[in-house]
Design a protein around this nucleic acid. Structure first.
Lengths: 139, 139
DNA sequence: TATTGTTATACTCTATAACTATA
DNA sequence: TATAGTTATAGAGTATAACAATA
């Protein structure tokens, strides 16, 4: 199949392609832990914000309350976090369960390994340049 | 909500963030045409490979035959393409319907507008650098 | 035996809408 | 009246498994 010419000059298209490639590998790297990259991100957010509630987590992940609910349910069922009583009777407070912090370190190491592997064709300087440019994407 | 430190130094994470931002805007830009970026990509592939079959299209998009089937069904129902008789009696040949080529140009213009808007904070040189670096992502 | 299209089914992620309890 | 959690439901996008027709 021939590629469309012009598609390759769109930043959005190249971004999507690179993201698919890295995402697939990241997913593979986290498979032994039973977590997707998105779920690991949620876990890291909860670790950085112990006691946060589901709605705040959802906002940070750009998903709504209902979707955040499902995500939290999964993490609770997987015995990674727990819901404690929050500042309100309406609100619950999310906390990592004991021992999860250590397991998180292993997951991050796996993710970093994947990240390195998929950017192996870039020098350190190029990698830093890429990171800096990506941070400036936006309206 | 505080961000996890370290997450921002992962290429995969920044890639994902940038991709989400650009993808949202691209989706908005194509809304008037009733197409998602992925569906436009399929259309561009069919234009670049007139007479291709569904399985080849699927392979080019990294989706399987069954998913390609659904995609082609959508494009047929939207009166954008048609299935003609292929080289086999098993195979059908995908072709753009008359007039779609012109409409495609408008869609591409909208997409390019979005692309430029979301990379407005980059110089031309930086944009080219980013494109080149993204192309080198991979194992 | 292998390939193409097709259908049925299911899974993931997301959203909307409505409800309950609390504030 | 507004907010947090919850539930039911739906839609997009993907996959697997099976089947028929054709090669």
């Amino acid at each position: 199949m021939r590629q469309d010419e012009g598609l390759g000059t769109l930043l959005g298209y190249q971004l999507q392609q690179a993201n698919l490639i890295m995402g697939d590998d990241a997913r593979r790297a986290l498979e032994p832990y039973g977590l997707s990259p998105a779920k690991l991100t949620a876990l890291l957010l909860i670790r950085a914000n112990p006691g946060c509630d589901q709605s705040a987590l959802g906002r940070a992940l750009s998903i709504n309350r209902s979707s955040a609910m499902k995500l939290v349910n999964f993490l609770v069922t997987a015995a990674l976090i727990e819901r404690r009583l929050g500042r309100d009777l309406r609100t619950n407070a999310l906390h990592l369960l004991p021992g999860v912090d250590e397991r998180l370190e292993a997951m991050i190491a796996a993710l970093r390994g994947s990240d390195r592997h998929m950017s192996a064709r870039l020098t350190e300087g190029e990698r830093a340049t890429l990171l800096a440019l990506l941070r400036r994407i936006g309206p």
